[in-house]
Nucleic acid binder design. Structure first.
Lengths: 222, 222
DNA sequence: TGACCCTTCCCCCTTTCGGCGGACGCCTCC
DNA sequence: GGAGGCGTCCGCCGAAAGGGGGAAGGGTCA
């Protein structure tokens, strides 16, 4: 907008997504902007890390859901190794806990894959300048989760483990046997975590764990 | 391969995905095959239906997760309206119950977005010939779910409703009040559905419901 | 050292679950 | 029209879950 702005230098971008289709689409999208150069691609977090260290891109566009090494882990590692490289998290759906995870891991932006090529290009330029861009809904959830995290006391390691086991459908007796403690101890943990999370039953706790990424559905038998 | 095969006629394809990025990538992928022509695109199920009726494509490549009208619903409607048009379901992740849903809705193939352009092109040609192509893991789950569906007795309407409410974290008393019956009745439903599904607790039932698409996590408060 | 937190375990108690058996109405099929 | 199957309803009862309170050992930190 302002004529005092220097002309945009070319931004060097690394694309990270496990789907070749998506990488191709992104390449095409970003090819429309002459000030963006896609210097490389990676299909998972490990590759991303290696390529980033080799290429030292200005911005990494990172899918969060990937095999081998997921995007959040990769983002954390990448920010540690290359503090000058900004990461834009890119997901297809707004997943509750991933917004937090990505931001906490050091992503500067959180975008959805249904973004237009303009929006994406703008976010990349913004990231190169160190400016934050958040999808509106992502911003809303971030604020909400931040507030609730303030309210909510954090769980101790044992409480977290017990919560995860509850989210796999285990009974108190099962958990006690699994952890090598008495059932009374497990009950204490359950009571405390229910109280902390302001929940009423273990079933609600299981749902809470799934919703907030503390446990996963694929850990469940059946 | 065989020289006795007739030359492939050009297959007319409609791409359906809510992400423009993915549509672009697919276009690029399929553009490599001279016998495939992408005749149109749609960003949701409703658009897909309208475009399919206008264009009468040979094959529709359909993402399953979309706003407005999801891919499974769209597939069902599309197969009803245009029985000669084959549908290939395309998803980014192998979601348990969606494999069943897509096949039951009339999809001829189930592919993942991480497929190579060759695989995808081959599946499109196969679909045009009326041949099934399944991602190996999708095939495995289909067989497994088919078998377990054989084993598993079906739930009655009431039992299904109770299961859904359990999967939202409600207690028996809550459910009784909600459904206008006594708590004892709710308990009967719970007992029977646990027995039918071979589960041990309401928490396991909640997880089962989520895993099999009977209930959704976004129906949960918190 | 004292204060604080985490973990472990116990007690007692109420509520909730879940299994078992029984009942009624509705439908179908012989 | 009676026999059986199924869905819905209910009560009894033992088991599991959950609340409240207390207590002990170990860890960290001021």
């Amino acid at each position: 907008m302002s004529i005092s702005n220097p002309p945009n230098p070319t931004v060097r971008v690394l694309l990270v997504d496990d789907h070749a289709v998506v990488r191709q689409g992104l390449r095409l999208f970003l090819g429309l902007d002459p000030d963006i150069e896609v210097v490389g691609e990676a299909g998972n977090g490990e590759e991303a890390l290696a390529e980033a260290q080799r290429l030292a891109p200005d911005v990494v566009v990172m899918d969060l859901m990937m095999p081998v090494m997921d995007g959040i882990t990769a983002t954390r590692a990448l920010r540690r190794a290359l503090p000058d490289t900004e990461v834009i998290a890119l997901t297809s759906t707004l997943e509750e806990h991933k917004v937090n995870g990505a931001i906490e891991a050091g992503a500067i932006s959180y975008m959805l894959k249904d973004a237009s090529s303009d929006t994406l290009a703008e976010a990349i330029h913004a990231a190169a300048r160190g400016e934050v861009r958040l999808h509106p809904e992502a911003a809303r959830r971030l604020v909400r989760d931040f507030r609730s995290a303030e309210m909510r006391e954090t769980l101790t390691p044992k409480e977290t483990i017990v919560l995860q086991l509850i989210a796999r459908g285990h009974s108190n007796r099962d958990i006690a046997a699994d952890q090598g403690v008495s059932e009374a101890t497990v009950k204490t943990h359950v009571s405390r975590l229910l109280s902390k999370l302001e929940l009423e039953s273990r079933t609600q706790a299981a749902l809470y764990a799934l919703k907030h990424g503390i446990a996963r559905l694929d850990g469940v038998e059946g």
